[in-house]
Simulated assay, not measured.
Amino acid sequence: MSDATIDKLKDRFDAEAASGMQEVFQFHFNDAGDYYLVVDDGTLEVHEGEHDDPSVSLSMSSDTLKGVMSGEINGMTAFMTGKLKATGNVMLATQLSHLFPGH
């Protein structure tokens, strides 16, 4: 995962959509390492590594994440076809496109 992709996440973050939300999204990228996003009532922090107790853990390639974020890949389709694996509160994964809407 390049810093540019992380920066795009920060740029696209919709604080209003995250109002009242307190969740940790763990990402395991098979081509780019581990990152987690801490969403806390309209704020976003991005960290490298693994969180002790994430709300949801998502495993995928960084390209799959880019596709889901851009809307080119349907998250449920990615999940059903095995491109995306999720554990924990899987329904949170469906919130990603709302939290990081495309421009």
Rank of each mutant, 00 (worst) to 15 (best):
M1G: 05
S2P: 02
D3N: 10
D3S: 05
D3Q: 14
A4W: 01
T5F: 11
I6K: 13
I6V: 08
K8I: 10
L9S: 12
L9R: 13
D11Q: 14
D11E: 13
R12I: 05
F13W: 15
F13Y: 15
D14A: 09
D14M: 09
A15G: 01
A15N: 07
A15C: 01
A18D: 00
G20E: 08
G20L: 08
M21K: 14
Q22E: 15
V24L: 06
V24N: 00
V24T: 10
Q26R: 08
Q26L: 05
F27D: 11
H28D: 13
F29W: 13
D31Y: 13
G33M: 06
G33F: 08
Y36I: 02
L37T: 06
D40N: 14
D40M: 03
D41M: 11
G42M: 07
G42T: 05
T43D: 13
L44Q: 09
V46N: 00
V46Q: 03
E50P: 09
E50S: 06
D52M: 10
D53H: 08
S55M: 13
S55V: 02
V56T: 00
V56D: 00
S57T: 15
S59D: 12
S59W: 09
M60F: 10
S62R: 07
D63V: 02
D63N: 09
T64P: 00
T64Y: 07
L65W: 10
K66W: 04
M69N: 03
S70K: 02
G71F: 03
E72W: 00
N74K: 00
M76W: 12
M80H: 05
M80F: 12
T81H: 08
K83Q: 15
L84E: 07
A86D: 05
A86S: 11
T87W: 12
T87S: 15
G88Q: 10
G88L: 05
G88H: 12
G88A: 12
V90H: 09
L92I: 14
S97H: 04
H98W: 01
L99F: 14
P101L: 10
P101G: 04
P101C: 03
H103K: 14
